[in-house]
């Protein structure tokens, strides 16, 4: 006690160094104990991407693009994801949401799936090798066909086909996956306030209850 009272500066130094060592050890332990494997941000970005693996962004698949985004690439290179994906990515990364970079393709209005005109197929297996989803079934010299449920509509099988028997056909909405449309924005509806304009935009406002 007496020595501490006699050498206050030395005592303070010892105390500080002791604390520094203690916390250093704690932090070191925490770093080892709670080590995060991999890059979680890449995982999160990858989860937002549409996983079409189409390569339109210029990377060989969605994950490489996720990696590239994590490394600072633009987030507007994914046409299959479209604006929704861009917005989600912007949210996640806390940046301004840009519009889709048209250079990489346009956002399709309707999703498409590949369809093989089966009597024209010569069974070359080229599309099978090109398909990143393993969504094409067939064998050499046998007719191939697309498993429509697994097809992401990435287009990659169309180009290698030597007889051009693959079409990208739009997925038609069935009664099961039909969904209500958003009503016209309120400012558009406000335009109908003028009595003579009424009736122009009313066909869209179907039998909704009053």
């Amino acid at each position: 006690m007496e020595t501490i009272a006699q050498h206050p500066i030395a005592a303070a130094l010892i105390a500080l160094i002791g604390l520094a060592l203690l916390f250093g050890a704690l932090l070191g332990f925490a770093a080892v104990r709670f080590k995060v494997e991999g890059d979680p941000i890449v995982e999160q970005i990858d989860n937002l991407l549409p996983q079409t693996q189409c390569g339109q962004c210029g990377y060989p698949g969605c994950r490489p693009y996720a990696q590239a985004i994590a490394n600072g690439d633009a987030i507007n290179k994914c046409p299959p994801g479209g604006q929704t994906t861009i917005n989600e990515l912007a949210d996640l990364l806390d940046v301004e949401a840009p519009t889709l970079d048209e250079e990489h393709g346009e956002e399709a209005d309707v999703p498409t799936v590949a369809f093989i005109r089966e009597d024209e197929c010569i069974g070359c297996t080229k599309c099978i090798q090109a398909c990143p989803m393993d969504a094409i079934l067939g064998a050499a010299k046998q007719m191939h066909t697309v498993i429509a449920d697994e097809c992401t509509g990435c287009d990659l099988c169309v180009e290698p086909c030597p007889v051009d028997c693959i079409d990208m056909i739009p997925v038609s909405t069935t009664i099961k996956d039909w969904k209500w449309e958003l009503p016209a924005a309120s400012h558009e509806q406000a335009a109908n306030l003028i009595a003579t304009d009424r009736g122009r935009g009313q066909s869209q406002q179907s039998g909704e209850a009053a």
Binding site: T52, A135, K179
Partner: peptide, 28 residues
Amino acid sequence: VQYYRAAKGEIRQHRIDKEKSDRSRRRF
């Protein structure tokens, strides 16, 4: 209500897409 119905449809679609994209990722 029309907004909510549309939004519900959107969310359902999104869930389906998500499921599909997860399956696609696994397959890929």
